[in-house]
């Protein structure tokens, strides 16, 4: 297992490195415009632009520029997203500071939504599978179909429309500047974003749990469990669910990992100042260090999520444990 983890970690570093190179190349080799000129402003003289170029290090050879950025990816203090290179080109704030500031919002959004979608998706999937063909099942599947096919931004606006403007049950989008994160949570500002993010996933999980459980329940070992004389409840929950939920763990880990890197659409619709909003802003403002930071940050979470899922999976499924 340890050997495996070491290997995965090394692999993860490789992935992060590749991601960083790709981001870098995309940004610098396919320039839509010159960042220095953009930052210097429209009326800037040649000297000013040259100066900006120098400040940003854009006058150095490409390899040297990459080296500067790559150094910031080394996860050691003093290197990791170091301020000398990794600062927001548009407002000169250190990227790590901005991401550290924004991440708690993304984390609260992600984990809250995750709890919600598990709480909706798994029971609904189980009921649909156990009472296959019943009203419950059909209702569950209709929900799943709607949830899976509804675009996130549409759902977000719909919820705002209904629950905020219509019923006035929940606060609308945006976080008042003087409110603390927990204050916002208590105010219920996260509820609609959670719901929005959760519905799509919940629908997906409903389908997945239902499908997995139905498939599992037709496995030979379920027949064995029944033949032992176990109660139907024990058969379903101890034998069926255990196997049916294992792939859900994988899915869940990856989903959470991806979302921790920024729930772009939901954050935008509800104006939650998380990593996703930051990513969008960085891209539109041509803030390369921010873009790079978020990309690597997101990639980091996805890779870590993969690692966690692998470990968890090995724990849950003994067949892959000792490989």
């Amino acid at each position: 297992m340890l050997r495996y983890l070491v290997r995965r970690t090394l692999f993860m570093i490789l992935v992060l490195w590749i991601v960083s190179v790709l981001t870098f190349v995309i940004f610098f080799k396919l320039p839509v415009r010159d960042p220095a000129q953009q930052i210097a402003g429209k009326g800037a003289t040649a000297e000013v632009i040259a100066n900006v170029r120098h400040q940003l290090g854009l006058d150095q050879p490409l390899l040297e520029q990459y080296r500067r950025f790559a150094k910031g990816l080394i996860p050691l203090p003093g290197f990791w997203l170091n301020e000398q290179v990794y600062y927001n080109w548009t407002n000169r704030v250190a990227v790590w500071e901005e991401m550290r500031r924004d991440f708690p919002y993304t984390a609260v959004l992600t984990f809250g939504a995750a709890v919600l979608w598990l709480a909706i998706g798994i029971p609904l999937g189980i009921i649909s599978a156990i009472r296959r063909g019943s009203v419950w099942d059909r209702a569950g599947m209709v929900f799943a179909l709607i949830g899976v096919s509804a675009p996130t931004f549409w759902l977000g606006f719909l919820f705002l429309w209904v629950f905020h403007y219509g019923l006035e049950m929940f606060p609308g989008s945006g976080i008042p500047p003087q409110e603390s994160l927990w204050g916002s949570v208590l105010q219920g500002r996260f509820f609609l974003p959670w719901l929005t993010l959760a519905i799509t996933s919940a629908a997906f999980y409903t389908r997945m749990v239902r499908g997995n459980l139905l498939e599992t329940m037709s496995e030979d070992y379920i027949r064995t469990a029944r033949a032992k004389g176990l109660s139907e409840r024990a058969v379903t929950y101890r034998h069926g669910l255990r196997a049916a939920l294992t792939p859900v763990v994988t899915m869940f880990g990856l989903d959470v990992g991806i979302l921790l890197g920024g729930a772009v659409i939901t954050e935008t619709v509800f104006n939650i100042p998380g990593i996703g909003s930051y990513a969008i802003r960085s891209i539109f403002q041509f803030n390369f260090p921010g873009t790079m930071g978020v990309t690597v940050f997101a990639a980091f979470f996805i890779v870590v999520a993969n690692l966690v899922v692998d470990v968890l999976y090995a724990y849950l499924d003994p067949r892959v444990r000792y490989e």
């Binding site: 989008s173 945006g174 500047p177 509800f270 104006n271």
Partner: peptide
């Protein structure tokens, strides 16, 4: 106070 960010339509709303 200024809250920054969000979709155009939402701000207008």
């Amino acid at each position: 106070e200024v809250v920054i960010g969000g979709a155009e339509k939402e701000l207008a709303n």
